[in-house]
Design a binder for these strands. Structure first.
Length: 208
DNA sequence: GCCTGGATTATC
DNA sequence: ATAATCCAGGCA
């Protein structure tokens, strides 16, 4: 059973949240989606859609098509990123799959799909699977088992350049799940920093 | 054409 | 902290 096209033809934020707990399948391999990010249309300064639809030649033109199609691109020259186009034709939206937990055909290691580059490596997804219809073919998403998992949201990762859009809570993850790429809830597990001896180097600068 | 900078990850 | 490594956008 796979999710129907209608599932994807909704707002990116709605789809990003709804995908948590679903099963991402590529052939004989599958993982449970535990972390996603919503990217909106041209108004979203963090989105690849921010430069407009680019008349057919642009890598991102697929984002302006109807929901339910894959969008796979190369980031930093090294990592393949897997996205699913959402909304209606013309919207320019997509959801990035940032982390999966191993399910079928994968080593039972919570780190195997922890991070967007790891997701594509684990499931053997690359740019040959760009622009594929998830309603048919070996690449698709199936509904997850009930009950729905606990979901938390927060700012997207690595988009500090996006001005006001950088801080919006468009990242969703399965609360406290070990395969989430960065500090899920970390409820009160914090600090108590006081007893630490003075550090000699002051490298407190945080880039992203 | 040339330059810049990423929706990252592993390692120095 | 930074190398690895490729492509799109911006400008000349």
């Amino acid at each position: 059973m796979r999710l129907p096209t209608s599932f994807y033809r909704r707002d990116a934020t709605t789809v990003a949240r709804a995908l948590i707990g679903c099963v991402l399948v590529n052939g004989a391999r599958a993982g449970i989606i535990v972390e996603t990010e919503a990217y909106h249309g041209p108004e979203d300064l963090a989105s690849h859609a921010r430069f407009g639809r680019g008349d057919g030649t642009a890598r991102t033109s697929v984002m302006f098509g109807p929901g339910g199609i894959s969008y796979v691109y190369l980031c930093y020259g090294i990592h393949e990123m897997f996205n699913i186009v959402t909304g209606e034709a013309g919207d320019g939206q997509a959801v990035l799959i940032r982390a999966i937990a191993p399910h079928l055909g994968l080593p039972d290691d919570p780190a195997i799909g922890r991070g967007p580059g790891k997701v594509t490596t684990a499931l053997a997804i690359d740019r040959r699977l760009d622009r594929k219809n998830l309603a048919r073919g070996p690449l698709f998403v199936a509904p997850g088992p009930e009950p729905a998992p606990p979901i938390t949201s927060g700012p997207r990762i690595g988009v500090a350049y996006a001005g006001a859009w950088a801080g919006r809570p468009f990242r969703f993850w399965w609360a406290d799940h070990p395969s989430v790429s960065r500090g899920a809830a970390a409820p009160s597990a914090s600090p108590a920093p006081s007893l630490a001896p003075s550090r000699t180097t002051v490298s407190t600068r945080r880039k992203r």
